[in-house]
Amino acid sequence: MTVMGMSLLDFARGPAINTAMAVFVLGVLWRLVSLLGLPRSVDRSRPKAGVPSAPMAALAGIWRHMGTPRGFGPMSMFQVFNGWIFHVGLAVIVFGFAQHMLFLKGLFGLSWPVLPTSVITLAAYVTLASLVAALVRRMTHPVLRLLSTGNDYVSWLVTVLPVVTGLLAVSHLGARYETLLALHILSIALLLVWFPFGKLMHAFLVFITRAETGMTYARRGVKT
């Protein structure tokens, strides 16, 4: 298969992924600058005595919202566990797989020890199952159905595609390896292009919102 006179793989590895990375970087910067550049209210209330410094409070906020606080009372934990599973699973795949590390090394010059392919494959299957479970829940739970918008479904799709195409490529299933690899890279390009404009942006925003809530509550001396 050829695109613009190049093999599909060359297209994916060249113009497609490069453009996608540029869109990703510029898009994320635009989102962050346009948010952080907004007017900011100053809190003039008197903080409680002996509260932690702002950076400590921000870190505490980031840590504190990793899960449901102890003593909160019954909550259905499926969502929390499942959320953890696919987030950790995605991180393991992205950073633990040798080829990914080499690709990132090419970009940033850093390298690190990787995990055996069998472990990565297992992680990918678990992540896939977890993402499917998340989708089923989104489509069946009355609260999630009401909250969900196109953004949620597109974000799900662009996240799941690289996992699926990656698994196919590693197991050489369905087509020539080169074609599968090209599709895998294209799916990542799609993810990168969508990232800044959809809810995947939460990967950056989470540090801002948790830190700000952490600081507000710390100022008030709230311990949770």
Binding site: R31, L35, D152, K199
Partner: peptide
């Protein structure tokens, strides 16, 4: 009301629905 703090919150919601169980009205 446009303000960094509030807009960050509004843009960050991932529609996970976790909050529903915490609300006494729900």
């Amino acid at each position: 009301q446009t303000e960094e703090h509030m807009n960050a919150y509004l843009e960050a919601c991932v529609h996970c629905g976790q909050c529903s169980e915490a609300c006494h009205f729900h």
